[in-house]
Write a protein that binds this DNA or RNA. Structure first.
Length: 187
DNA sequence: CCCTGATTCGC
DNA sequence: GCGAATCAGG
C-alpha cells in the first residue's frame, strides 16, 4: 500500500492531533508500521511535537564523528539448545552499551584489571559470573554473547540443557538439591 | 522490558 | 519516496 492523498490527510490530522506514531499506524489500514508513519511525517515536514528524546542536544562540542556503522552481519548458527531452565546464576544490572566509538575488538574487558566487570556488561557480552560476588576477583566471562542470549556459546551450553530422562542423567536422578529443606513439607 | 520520536540508508 | 533498522532517550 502506498501513501494516497487520503491516507496522507489522515496522517496529518492524527499527527497534529497528538496521537503517537504507533497509534496512527494502527488507525491507518494496510499494515503500516510506526516507522513508516514517522518517516512520512518527516517527509511531509510535520514532526516537531513533544519528542521524548529531544532533551540532550549539546549546543557545542560534537567531537564524535559519524560512527562507521558496520553491517550487522548475519548471526552464526544459534545454539539450538532447547531451553529447559535458565539457572540465571546472577542478576546483573544492564548499563548502557559502551560508547559507539568502541573499536570493533572482540571481547570487552577492562583495560585496567583485565577482568570483565559490571560496567563492561552489555547485551553482547557474556554475563556468566566467574567466582563469587563480593570476592576481589569476581568478574564475568566477557566473551561475545550468542545473539539474543545472555551468555557466550560455551556458557549457553551449560545454562540451557535439554531435559534428559532421569535414568540417563549423570548423577543418578534425584533432585539436585536435598530432597527436603528445613521447614519444607514434601508435596 | 516496554515505550517514544529521530535518523540513516538500501531499496 | 519509502520504511526497516537503528539510535537515543524515558
Amino acid at each position: 500500500m502506498s501513501w494516497t492523498d487520503e491516507r496522507i490527510d489522515q496522517l496529518k490530522q492524527l499527527w497534529e492531533k497528538g496521537l503517537t506514531a504507533s497509534q496512527i499506524a494502527e488507525k491507518l489500514a494496510g499494515g503500516i508500521s510506526r516507522n513508516a508513519v514517522i518517516g512520512k511525517a518527516h517527509r511531509l515536514g510535520l514532526k516537531a511535537r513533544p519528542s521524548p528524546v529531544k532533551s540532550g542536544e549539546s549546543s557545542a562540542a560534537e567531537a564524535a564523528p559519524a560512527a562507521p556503522r558496520p553491517t550487522p552481519a548475519a548471526a552464526p548458527a544459534a545454539p539450538a539448545a532447547s531451553a529447559a531452565a535458565a539457572p540465571s546464576p546472577v542478576e546483573a544490572p544492564r548499563p548502557k552499551p559502551a560508547a559507539p566509538a568502541a573499536p570493533r575488538v572482540v571481547a570487552t574487558t577492562t583495560g585496567a584489571g583485565g577482568k570483565t566487570s559490571l560496567l563492561d556488561l552489555s547485551d553482547k557480552i557474556c554475563k556468566w559470573p566467574i567466582g563469587h560476588p563480593g570476592d576481589a576477583d569476581f568478574h564475568f566471562c566477557g566473551k561475545p554473547a550468542q545473539p539474543s542470549f545472555p551468555y557466550c556459546g560455551e556458557h549457553c551450553a551449560v545454562a540451557y540443557q535439554a531435559q534428559l530422562p532421569r535414568r540417563d542423567r549423570p548423577g543418578g536422578g534425584g533432585r539436585p538439591f536435598p530432597p527436603t529443606m528445613p521447614g519444607m513439607r514434601p508435596r
